[in-house]
Design a binder for these strands. Structure first.
Lengths: 197, 197, 197, 197
DNA sequence: TATGAATGAGAATTCATTCAT
DNA sequence: TATGAATGAATTCTCATTCAT
């Protein structure tokens, strides 16, 4: 990775944090520049616009989560176990780097206009969606999960994880985030599993 | 309801639509005024600021959904049936008036700074949260649902419904929204129910 | 003319002066606002962009010159006399309101990109071009002027008048502008007239 | 000419093209550097500022036209013939290298502020002006041209040629530029010549 | 109540120029 | 001589809010 690439990534990480904390429209380029201790003008040597930066950021954060799930998918364990392991890793991530998931929830999902050009369909989050599909497909082929339409299963999986990350961000939870991990994985598992499984 | 109250509500409905379509920061007061065929100045006779209007809007839309769920809660049917009936009504709402749910998902959940003062905790969405609690509590007391922590159950319920409304808004679904209703209610039910139920 | 129309015209006049003195790119919206003693934001209640203002200005200044020439064209005098009378009136204008002609020469002719959209062909200066055509055509029909292609005659007419306005703007002339009027009209007339005329 | 001189000239030629196409303010130093395949920083080893480059460019383009006219002035032909020959050569230039004349018309004449320091009076275009003076003076001494003030004669000569180059640049001409050459030279000649000539 | 002109503090972006390498 | 990252002031345009009418 060239020095310029490294700096680009470093800017993305800073932007990710600021965007997820303050929102896209309340984060200014000077804010990001200041957090990087660089000048406003120089920012534009790395990204041609604020929107472009936001698009790089969603790809960056998606890759991190996708990589996590890919590793789990590659493990030699049952689909049920994969569900529990990934849920746990996911919440660890939310605890350690909340900006990654919050960026997805609060910036990407909510500011369609920013990502309209260049992130059509699942273009910018496809890596992660693909891994979720793999997890669900495998489980169905194993007979661990019921056969069901992709969308309800996907919506339930993402909704349960995303919804909880939201609650965590709102600081309304009474216990540590990780203490809920198994209960949530269990809910998802029960929703997906074969009746008699 | 006074004439003024009626006009206020009419402004809220217009704002709800515009905010949910274009986002809070891409909807201007002149936009709202124009959609109401009234002057900007006059808008301020009804709401003291854009933020105040946004707060009224979240209460307004929450009430609609809460009322829907309250009616279901008051029915003389099993908790399982309540789940299915409400899910169906919810998706009917999403189809008929997507702005109500989209406002919650894309404006309220994603622009914390706007609602920070005045909507602390569940202050602005409490009516709905309360009804969800009632639904879950009753199910547990019936022994239809397992005993479990409120948050995982709540997050899963909201996440599954919210997540699907998102997918619907993204136009990625292959079938009509209502055709998914039972599958989603079923997923939620399976997650919540007693093992042997 | 509404009060708003009047103010619009007053802004155009101010802008015309500043643009012609300092050029399009060295005149800022704050400059124009300051010259009008109004705020920057309010400027945009009258013109949606700096370019739009520039386009209004070329139409405005063209109309003034075109009106002058139309009056001359309507006089009951020979084409030769029209040439002399208009040249004189034109230089009076250059002396009295140099911004009108200078805007044409230094802003309109030299910043094609600004006028590209909306002033195609002679769209924004057509009024004046039409009058020149009438003058030349009439002279040809009178047999006062030779038959010749429109473009060489037009280029010579405009070039001689425009070129001199430039020299005047450069402050290189030794005598008062008006003292050159007859000599210039005479040059143009000699170029256009019938040999034996 | 040293290697450095050669590169300087090569930069000037590139800049001339870009300035005349896009205008002074819409041509950036990075644009010029890119067209030269060199770095911005290195550009400043050749020219201390953008303005300095623009001043070199006007001298460069003036020299080309002046040289053309000087050659004609040195021919052993009548003043009338010189007028026709030069007009033809001038339009050949406009066709072959429009940037040279367009630079004069669209950059030099219209951006006084850029050339204010260093090109006072005719300092940067003097070579050409001198040759025009020689042409006009000789004609007057020959008795081919009328005695008349320098400025009206000069303005008409430059105006007719410049005006036509403009029309050519606007792509409004119906025939090939060179087909107008004699008609234009004829107009100029008729304006300047002795009555009985 | 109602109007819409007016304000002015910001926002994103550009670009001539410098400077460390 | 050559590179291109870095600087930061300047520019256009936006918009919530106010206020005279």
């Amino acid at each position: 990775m060239s020095a310029k690439e490294a700096k680009k990534n470093s800017i993305i990480e800073s932007a990710l944090k600021l965007f997820s904390q303050n929102g896209f429209y309340n984060t200014t380029i000077p804010d990001i520049a200041k957090s990087m201790k660089m000048s406003v003008g120089n920012m534009y040597n790395y990204f041609s616009s604020k929107e472009e930066l936001a698009k790089y950021a969603i790809k960056y954060s998606t890759n991190i989560i996708a990589k996590e799930l890919r590793e789990v998918n590659n493990m030699e364990i049952s689909s049920k176990e994969k569900l529990f392991v990934f849920t746990h890793k996911y919440f660890e991530n939310v605890k350690k780097s909340p900006e990654i998931v919050e960026y997805f929830l609060r910036v990407y999902l909510s500011n369609r206009e920013v990502f309209a050009q260049g992130c059509e369909g699942f273009l910018c989050v496809g890596d992660f969606v693909t891994e979720v599909m793999i997890l669900l497909d495998e489980g169905a082929q194993n007979k661990e999960f019921r056969e069901q339409d992709f969308f309800p299963a996907f919506g339930m999986f993402m909704g349960a994880l995303g919804g909880f990350a939201f609650l965590s961000g709102e600081n309304v939870l009474e216990k540590d985030l990780l203490e809920y991990s198994d209960a949530i994985a269990d809910n998802i598992y029960r929703a997906l599993k074969h009746e008699e499984a």
